[in-house]
Design a binder for these strands. Sequence first.
DNA 1: CCGACATATGACTGTATGGCAATATAGTGA
DNA 2: TCACTATATTGCCATACAGTCATATGTCGG
Lengths: 110, 110
Amino acid sequence: MVQAKLTPELLHIIAERFKAIGEPARLQILNTLRDGERTVTELVEETGLGQGNVSKHLQLLHTLGFVTRRKDGLHVYYAIADRSVFKLCDIMCGRLEAETSARRRVLAAR
Amino acid sequence: MVQAKLTPELLHIIAERFKAIGEPARLQILNTLRDGERTVTELVEETGLGQGNVSKHLQLLHTLGFVTRRKDGLHVYYAIADRSVFKLCDIMCGRLEAETSARRRVLAAR
DNA sequence: CCGACATATGACTGTATGGCAATATAGTGA
DNA sequence: TCACTATATTGCCATACAGTCATATGTCGG
């Protein structure tokens, strides 16, 4: 949150996007797309999620700008729209590691 | 998501934390804490949220490591635990701006 | 001890949402 | 046109959760 004016509307928009990636299935989909675009069927196979479920998640991810979508005949390809989403995840993982380290230090001090 | 092994468990833990900040009220609380620790009452006044509501959100934010908590007599002070949460928000805002710019470019090309 | 104050917590309600099953829709080739 | 395939969509159900209200709990000072 840059020191810009935080209107309730902006808070809502930001929160909405965090909520989108606050779902394991959607994170899994994004991670699967990490090394290249995929069709829905491929995502279904690689994630083990149901087809209808994947489709629903993709719709939301597309609507909120997390993935791009292109159609080629029968096939629809989805890909990561902006790789900064992985930066978000990296930061969150870093926090987790820092927390874990802090916990280990507490235990070691006993 | 660093190229580390992404177990379902890790996905869940990461998602849980994104979900925590995927709620406008909690973002508002974090933003209010941005320039210094506050008591619950101060947060209630400054956010306009209900006391019970604020308390509940704080409990979750504390449990997930977003805020620290210290007690001083009658008062409990909450503060930001790790300022990287604002880095998360900055990145998300940056994405929004990029999206908005891209949209303006599309419109201008008409 | 009691009253005031600050905070946490429990119960309830209404709304949102993930996952599933079924079906609709779109595209292709024979 | 029809059958097949890929994908999107709809409706339903169970669960999660935000917000509210009331109450419980802890602290302090007279």
